[in-house]
């Protein structure tokens, strides 16, 4: 949509300009300035702190510090730019020491998880809107239990009279209804498992009596409903889970950065 493209049109040129300017400064000053690594390091640290501040900002929604949308855009483009800063700070050479390799790896993981996260955040909502029925994540367990209760009542409850359905439920459906299923299938946008289940259900249905057929049709509907819930759970959970990497590693990275700072200062200028 247009309004989002507008952000792209301001963010990308800014990023490019910043990158070019940084490249120019790097060519001019790298190697010649002894404090260069310190300066790039501090700029990098400042950028990382601003990036981390987005997490803090989110916890203070009551302060009138502008819109989160703006801050996310800043977070994104500054994030990309921080990768450039990081490479400049590294002088485009891979680190060699154990600690520095771990530090760089942490940075890479944080950046990569961020990129994955924004990709997921842009791609998955479209899918959520088209399938499964809109549902609030926290309500899914309760809805799933409701589904299961209905299905059990239908298949093995006191009112059900069909042994066939009961058998089929116990063998094929009980496990399906018991807990979230097919996380990866749903994430891969594949309906194969539920299609297989529904096919089996149809097979039973074909040979069943009129009453059985009605019950099985209802059961199929419940299967679809449960599948929709699973789908939403998978996708919504993925939209949340990437942050489980991004945020903890960010703070871990800051701890490592603190030691890096102490080491750099303690070991470089400290021989006096």
């Amino acid at each position: 949509m247009k309004r989002h493209r507008r952000q792209l049109f301001t963010g990308l040129p800014l990023l490019l300009v910043a990158t070019v300017v940084t490249g120019y400064l790097h060519r001019r000053h790298a190697g010649a300035l002894p404090g260069y690594a310190f300066l790039t390091g501090w700029v990098l640290l400042a950028a990382m702190l601003v990036l981390t501040f987005y997490n803090v900002w989110k916890k203070l929604p009551f302060l009138p510090f502008g819109r989160s949308e703006f801050w996310l855009q800043l977070h994104l483009y500054l994030g990309y730019f921080t990768v450039v800063l990081f490479l400049v700070h590294l002088n485009f050479r891979p680190p060699r020491g154990v600690f520095e390799i771990v530090l760089a790896a942490l940075f890479t993981f944080v950046s990569a998880s961020g990129v994955v996260g924004i990709l997921l955040s842009r791609v998955l909502p479209r899918r959520l809107a088209t399938r499964g029925g809109e549902v609030i994540y926290e309500k899914i367990p309760a809805l799933r239990v409701a589904c299961r209760t209905q299905a059990e009542a239908l298949a093995v409850g006191p009112d059900s009279q069909s042994v066939v359905i009961g058998e089929f439920y116990l063998h094929r459906l009980a496990d399906f209804f018991a807990r979230p299923r097919n996380f990866w299938w749903h994430l891969a946008e594949s309906r194969r498992p539920v299609a297989a289940l529904l096919r089996e259900l149809e097979d039973v249905q074909r040979t069943g009596s009129e009453a059985e057929r009605v019950a099985l049709a209802k059961l199929a509907e419940l299967v679809r409903q449960k599948d929709g819930l699973d789908y939403h759970r998978s996708v919504q959970l993925s939209l949340k889970l990437w942050l489980f990497v991004h945020i903890p590693l960010t703070y871990g990275l800051l701890v490592f950065t603190a030691l890096h700072l102490a080491l750099v200062y303690g070991f470089s200028g400290g021989a006096r």
């Binding site: 989110k58 009551f62 009138p64 502008g66 819109r67 989160s68 949308e69």
Partner: peptide, 16 residues
């Protein structure tokens, strides 16, 4: 009663 307009709108990171 808050500063800066509706918090819901302000807090949406994706402008959604």
């Amino acid at each position: 009663e808050n500063h800066g307009g509706p918090a819901c709108e302000r807090s949406c990171p994706h402008g959604a």
